[in-house]
Simulated scan of single mutants.
Amino acid sequence: MSTTLTTWSLEQTSPSDLRPATPPEGDDITIARAEVPSAEFSRFLYTAVGGDIHWNDRLSLSYKEWQELVERPGAEIWVAYERGTPAGYVELDPQADGVVEIVYFGLIPAFRGRRIGGHLLTEGVRRAWDLAERWPDREPTRRVWLHTCSLDGPHAMANYERRGFRLFDTKVEEVEETSTPGPWPGAHS
């Protein structure tokens, strides 16, 4: 069975485009870079965040392929924690000519709807803009972009727009429906 999938691509072309979110109340949320490349931790975040919203493009990757992704120079994963528990993440993908893609961003379902997403996205965008400060062989970031689709959470597009992202492309296609794998096979009914 097929379904219509709309994919929107959005961008910022200057650090001044970022409109920061107000951090959530209290000091229970911290955001830290996962500085040790770990295929296991990356896969955990990917499945925990994307399992209920049809993220499946990386599920068939081997351990070696996954490790190669997280070990690329300039690739970074920034994780939001609530009192030590991972709540969500941002994965930055360095590309040519000073371009950085926010390739994955989201929250584990139990942490959605609590004002963490805007704060995490704000910090992820800041880290995309200052990526070259941590990777001296990279040229300064001149563009940050991402894509979202009609399968993502209902507040995803609004969050991106509130943070200052502008739409630059829309693609509509018919795709085969896939099952929602959950964080591990059989976790979601």
Rank of each mutant, 00 (worst) to 15 (best):
S189D: 13
A48E: 06
A187C: 05
G182Q: 07
I53Y: 08
R143N: 09
A96K: 07
E82S: 14
P183G: 10
Y160W: 11
A39F: 01
Q67F: 01
L121A: 14
T85K: 13
T141K: 02
G88M: 07
D28S: 07
P94W: 00
W8C: 12
G182F: 11
L92V: 02
T22F: 02
R166S: 15
G113K: 05
Y89T: 02
D169V: 06
G74S: 04
V103N: 08
L10I: 11
E161G: 02
F44A: 13
N159H: 01
R115P: 06
E133M: 07
I31E: 08
L167N: 10
D52T: 09
P94M: 05
S9Y: 13
G88H: 05
Q12E: 14
A87N: 05
M1D: 07
R126I: 12
P73V: 00
R112K: 04
D52N: 15
R58I: 02
A32G: 12
N159V: 12
P140A: 13
V144T: 05
R138C: 02
L5H: 03
P181F: 10
H188R: 14
P86A: 01
A110E: 14
T4R: 13
E25T: 03
R126C: 07
T170G: 06
T30C: 09
E82P: 09
E174V: 13
I31T: 05
P136Y: 08
G182E: 10
T13L: 04
T178Q: 15
R19T: 10
R142K: 14
P94G: 03
H54K: 09
A21L: 12
L5W: 03
P136A: 13
V125I: 02
G51T: 04
I116Y: 11
V100T: 05
G98K: 06
L59C: 04
E91N: 09
T22K: 10
G106I: 00
Y160K: 08
A187Q: 12
T170E: 14
Q12I: 01
D57Q: 02
T180G: 10
G164M: 06
S42D: 11
R127G: 10
V100M: 08
E35C: 04
W8V: 15
H155K: 08
I77D: 12
A87F: 01
A128K: 01
I102T: 03
L120K: 03
S14N: 15
R127F: 10
E123A: 07
T148H: 11
V125A: 09
S9C: 14
S179A: 15
R83H: 01
E176P: 09
V49P: 02
S150K: 04
E101N: 10
H188T: 14
E161D: 06
S38F: 08
T47E: 11
M157D: 06
E25H: 14
H119M: 04
S42Q: 05
H155E: 08
N159F: 00
W145Q: 15
H147N: 10
R127I: 03
Y89D: 04
V144E: 08
E161A: 07
E25I: 06
P86N: 06
D52R: 09
L18F: 02
V36W: 00
S62D: 00
